[in-house]
Amino acid sequence: MIRVARSNDLASVLKLYRELRPLDPDLEVNFAKEKWSEIIDDPLTFIIVADIDGELASTCSLNLNLSIANGARPFAIIEHVITSEKFRRQGLSRQVLEFAISMAWEENCCKVMLLSGEHLKKAHSLYGSVGFKSGIEKGFVIKPPS
Protein backbone atom coordinates (compact mmCIF):
# COMPACT_ATOMS: atom_id res chain seq x y z
CA MET A 1 0.00 0.00 0.00
CA ILE A 2 1.31 3.46 -0.91
CA ARG A 3 0.39 6.10 1.67
CA VAL A 4 1.54 9.20 3.53
CA ALA A 5 3.70 8.40 6.56
CA ARG A 6 2.20 8.59 10.03
CA SER A 7 3.70 9.50 13.38
CA ASN A 8 4.40 5.86 14.26
CA ASP A 9 6.52 5.37 11.09
CA LEU A 10 9.60 7.21 12.38
CA ALA A 11 11.79 4.17 13.17
CA SER A 12 11.01 2.54 9.83
CA VAL A 13 11.69 5.71 7.85
CA LEU A 14 14.98 6.21 9.70
CA LYS A 15 15.93 2.64 8.79
CA LEU A 16 15.31 3.39 5.10
CA TYR A 17 17.28 6.65 5.31
CA ARG A 18 20.20 4.74 6.85
CA GLU A 19 20.38 2.67 3.63
CA LEU A 20 20.55 5.80 1.47
CA ARG A 21 22.77 7.84 3.77
CA PRO A 22 24.84 5.47 5.96
CA LEU A 23 27.26 8.22 7.01
CA ASP A 24 24.59 10.52 8.43
CA PRO A 25 24.94 11.00 12.20
CA ASP A 26 22.54 9.12 14.45
CA LEU A 27 19.87 11.37 15.87
CA GLU A 28 19.17 11.47 19.59
CA VAL A 29 15.79 9.78 20.11
CA ASN A 30 13.84 12.74 21.53
CA PHE A 31 15.32 15.11 18.94
CA ALA A 32 14.33 12.71 16.14
CA LYS A 33 10.78 12.45 17.52
CA GLU A 34 10.51 16.25 17.75
CA LYS A 35 11.71 16.76 14.17
CA TRP A 36 9.49 13.94 12.90
CA SER A 37 6.46 15.57 14.53
CA GLU A 38 7.31 18.84 12.80
CA ILE A 39 7.48 17.03 9.45
CA ILE A 40 4.28 15.04 9.96
CA ASP A 41 2.38 18.15 11.15
CA ASP A 42 3.64 20.40 8.33
CA PRO A 43 0.80 20.83 5.80
CA LEU A 44 3.32 21.36 2.98
CA THR A 45 5.52 18.33 3.66
CA PHE A 46 4.68 14.70 2.95
CA ILE A 47 6.71 11.56 3.43
CA ILE A 48 5.33 8.97 1.03
CA VAL A 49 5.88 5.31 1.92
CA ALA A 50 5.30 1.88 0.43
CA ASP A 51 3.97 -0.31 3.24
CA ILE A 52 4.37 -4.03 2.55
CA ASP A 53 2.54 -6.02 5.22
CA GLY A 54 3.49 -3.53 7.92
CA GLU A 55 7.11 -3.07 6.78
CA LEU A 56 8.13 0.15 5.07
CA ALA A 57 9.89 -0.82 1.86
CA SER A 58 10.24 2.47 -0.01
CA THR A 59 9.88 6.19 0.56
CA CYS A 60 10.29 9.66 -0.89
CA SER A 61 9.66 13.13 0.45
CA LEU A 62 7.42 15.70 -1.23
CA ASN A 63 7.62 19.36 -0.28
CA LEU A 64 5.21 21.96 -1.59
CA ASN A 65 6.63 25.46 -1.90
CA LEU A 66 4.34 28.46 -2.04
CA SER A 67 5.00 30.98 -4.78
CA ILE A 68 3.70 34.22 -6.19
CA ALA A 69 4.97 33.25 -9.68
CA ASN A 70 3.12 31.09 -12.20
CA GLY A 71 -0.27 32.48 -11.20
CA ALA A 72 0.61 32.02 -7.51
CA ARG A 73 0.78 28.25 -8.00
CA PRO A 74 3.09 26.27 -5.72
CA PHE A 75 5.95 24.13 -6.99
CA ALA A 76 7.03 20.81 -5.54
CA ILE A 77 10.34 19.16 -4.76
CA ILE A 78 10.84 15.43 -4.37
CA GLU A 79 13.88 14.20 -2.45
CA HIS A 80 15.24 11.11 -0.73
CA VAL A 81 13.84 8.41 -2.99
CA ILE A 82 14.76 5.16 -1.24
CA THR A 83 13.81 1.52 -1.62
CA SER A 84 15.21 -1.01 0.82
CA GLU A 85 17.60 -3.41 -0.85
CA LYS A 86 15.42 -6.41 -0.02
CA PHE A 87 12.46 -4.84 -1.87
CA ARG A 88 14.22 -3.54 -4.98
CA ARG A 89 13.18 -4.42 -8.53
CA GLN A 90 9.49 -4.56 -7.59
CA GLY A 91 8.46 -1.13 -8.89
CA LEU A 92 8.07 0.42 -5.44
CA SER A 93 10.18 3.52 -6.14
CA ARG A 94 8.03 4.12 -9.20
CA GLN A 95 4.87 3.78 -7.11
CA VAL A 96 5.94 6.21 -4.37
CA LEU A 97 7.09 8.69 -7.03
CA GLU A 98 3.82 8.44 -8.96
CA PHE A 99 1.86 8.91 -5.72
CA ALA A 100 3.93 12.00 -4.85
CA ILE A 101 3.58 13.46 -8.34
CA SER A 102 -0.19 12.91 -8.23
CA MET A 103 -0.35 14.72 -4.89
CA ALA A 104 1.58 17.64 -6.39
CA TRP A 105 -0.85 17.90 -9.31
CA GLU A 106 -3.81 17.70 -6.89
CA GLU A 107 -2.26 20.68 -5.04
CA ASN A 108 -2.15 22.60 -8.37
CA CYS A 109 1.66 22.69 -8.52
CA CYS A 110 3.10 24.27 -11.64
CA LYS A 111 6.02 21.81 -11.67
CA VAL A 112 7.73 19.06 -9.72
CA MET A 113 11.51 19.08 -9.37
CA LEU A 114 13.85 16.33 -8.26
CA LEU A 115 17.59 16.40 -7.69
CA SER A 116 19.64 13.24 -7.99
CA GLY A 117 23.29 12.39 -7.52
CA GLU A 118 25.15 12.93 -10.78
CA HIS A 119 26.45 9.34 -10.86
CA LEU A 120 23.15 7.52 -10.14
CA LYS A 121 22.40 6.49 -13.72
CA LYS A 122 19.89 3.71 -12.83
CA ALA A 123 17.93 6.16 -10.72
CA HIS A 124 17.96 8.66 -13.59
CA SER A 125 16.37 6.04 -15.83
CA LEU A 126 13.63 5.52 -13.25
CA TYR A 127 13.01 9.26 -12.99
CA GLY A 128 12.76 9.55 -16.75
CA SER A 129 10.29 6.67 -16.88
CA VAL A 130 7.85 8.52 -14.59
CA GLY A 131 8.06 11.72 -16.65
CA PHE A 132 10.99 13.73 -15.31
CA LYS A 133 13.08 15.31 -18.05
CA SER A 134 16.60 16.62 -17.90
CA GLY A 135 17.68 19.63 -19.92
CA ILE A 136 14.60 21.78 -19.18
CA GLU A 137 16.13 23.57 -16.21
CA LYS A 138 19.55 23.20 -14.66
CA GLY A 139 19.88 22.44 -10.97
CA PHE A 140 22.53 23.95 -8.71
CA VAL A 141 23.39 23.04 -5.15
CA ILE A 142 25.35 24.88 -2.48
CA LYS A 143 26.21 23.29 0.84
CA PRO A 144 27.35 25.02 4.02
CA PRO A 145 31.09 25.35 4.60
CA SER A 146 32.55 22.58 6.77
Rank of each mutant, 00 (worst) to 15 (best):
F140S: 01
G54A: 12
E55P: 04
G139P: 07
M113H: 10
S37A: 13
H124C: 05
V4F: 06
H119L: 06
S58P: 08
L44V: 01
A11P: 00
L16N: 03
N70I: 05
F99Q: 09
G54Y: 13
V49I: 14
H119P: 02
L44W: 13
D53S: 10
K143V: 02
A11S: 15
R94S: 12
S125I: 09
N8W: 05
K111N: 10
S129D: 01
L16M: 09
H80T: 14
K15G: 10
K15M: 13
A57I: 03
R88N: 07
I47V: 15
K35E: 15
R18H: 10
F46K: 00
C60R: 03
S116W: 04
A57K: 06
I39T: 04
I47S: 06
T83I: 09
R18N: 07
H80L: 04
E98T: 10
M1L: 04
N108C: 06
S7W: 05
E28Y: 00
L120N: 12
L56N: 03
N8K: 12
Q95A: 15
M103K: 15
M1N: 13
G71A: 11
M103C: 08
V81E: 04
N70Q: 11
V29H: 14
L92F: 14
L66V: 14
E106D: 15
G139Q: 00
F31C: 06
K35R: 15
T45F: 06
L16G: 04
V141L: 15
